[in-house]
Design a protein around this nucleic acid. Structure first.
Lengths: 131, 131
DNA sequence: TTGAGATATGCAGATATTTGCAAATATAAT
DNA sequence: ATTATATTTGCAAATATCTGCATATCTCAA
């Protein structure tokens, strides 16, 4: 298989993982801290099973890593830089049927909120754990 | 609806448009030239109907624009910069079941091939047509 | 045993693929 | 010019496949 085809397939797989609002929210929430299923459930306001299933998808595609502490399982991003790239993608969304003006301001606010700096100690931990 | 939710939804929609290998190939092929259905059909090696339907999806979400010249309809990207961003995304794909080494070299080659510079005259045309 | 989380099942809705046809436009012949 | 023909593109219906969600069940550690 030519490499263009291979990469197009893998990219498509990757995008399909990102093509759900809850998974995007999860990635954004994990941008600068690690969280357990319970915290995510409260933040997102969906069932614990739902959170768990979306985490399973993210885990299966190696976007997140887990580690147990006490009786909780905490999740972190494999590549925290992904959030920067993801926020850049907001540039390309276009209004479908929703109010164009509202979308613009929402985009600006989301970019700001999801762009706050990654905690240094956390970054250190990431590096330690990723090798 | 809180703006985070709105943006997450719109981003998810956007990603779902990108979550098909043929549409990714089309976007990549349109990076520095405009093409008609026939050319795309030859390049991609799929049925003309298939090309047409994927173009319809891209058009419906305003990723491409069309204009007729002679007997052909030519398609161009609304935001050529999107290809740069898309190529950056290759960084985050991880091998699933396929050979890891092969994926790495394929990624490098695709990044190179899909990163060749945009023709200046074309960029000028884009700017003229996009206002 | 209790609490946190993962997994299995089944259903509903969405999405892709194929096939065939319709509409529009160009080309050529008369 | 008019008619016939071929090309290009869009569209629709049928089928198959994928995805998400809810409920229930299961595992593991404290």
């Amino acid at each position: 298989m030519p490499h263009r085809t291979l990469i197009a397939q893998q990219l498509a797989r990757f995008f399909s993982v990102l093509s759900h609002p809850v998974r995007i929210r999860i990635i954004a929430e994990l941008r600068n801290s690690e969280l357990c299923v319970n915290s995510l459930q409260e933040i997102l306001g969906i069932s614990h099973s739902g959170v768990s299933q979306h985490l399973a998808t993210l885990r299966a595609h190696r976007l997140i890593k887990e580690h147990r502490r006490g009786r909780n399982v905490f999740y972190r991003l494999c590549s925290p830089e992904m959030v920067t790239w993801l926020v850049d993608g907001i540039t390309f969304i276009t209004p479908d049927n929703s109010d164009e003006e509202r979308l613009r301001t929402a985009a600006a606010m989301a970019k700001e909120q999801w762009s706050d700096p990654i905690d240094d100690r956390l970054l250190f931990e990431y590096e330690a754990l990723n090798k």
